[in-house]
Amino acid sequence: MINYITLTYQVSGDDFTRAGEASSDVKSKLKQMGVSPEMVRKVAISMYEGEINMVIHAHGGIIKVTISPHEILMVLEDQGPGIPDVEKAMQAGYSTAPENIRSLGFGAGMGLPNMKKYTDEMDIKTKIGVGTTVTMKVKL
């Protein structure tokens, strides 16, 4: 018997109206699975932040979410510009978002800090000019 499922989402870049579709779908599936509201909240918030980052900085990418009874693993992979200074990017309030993005209410510099806050494990692998892979884990 299979005891995990992997969901794959293509996130398109530069389309804010569609940003959040993937995390919204995961959210509704987790509720259908009877995952506790608290865990759904953690996954929804961290994945939404990651998804938005992909749209803003990396022209989209691919998200793979693996759900099993003990944990939810989110892998967000993009071929964007990469993060020059991960440590700095992790600081609350640090933002590189241009003004037109900020005026939409995004880019407050809380994306990565929130992703870390709401997940149990988080790892960023990034290479300038090649792309970034963010792996997040929420333990159930």
């Binding site: 018997m1 299979i2 005891n3 995990y4 499922i5 509720k31 259908q32 699975m33 009877g34 995952v35 759900i67 099993s68 009874p69 159930l140």
Partner: peptide, 10 residues
């Protein structure tokens, strides 16, 4: 909710 437990729901 779909299944009785997580394994069934998955």
């Amino acid at each position: 909710k779909l299944g009785e437990d997580m394994i069934e729901s998955i």
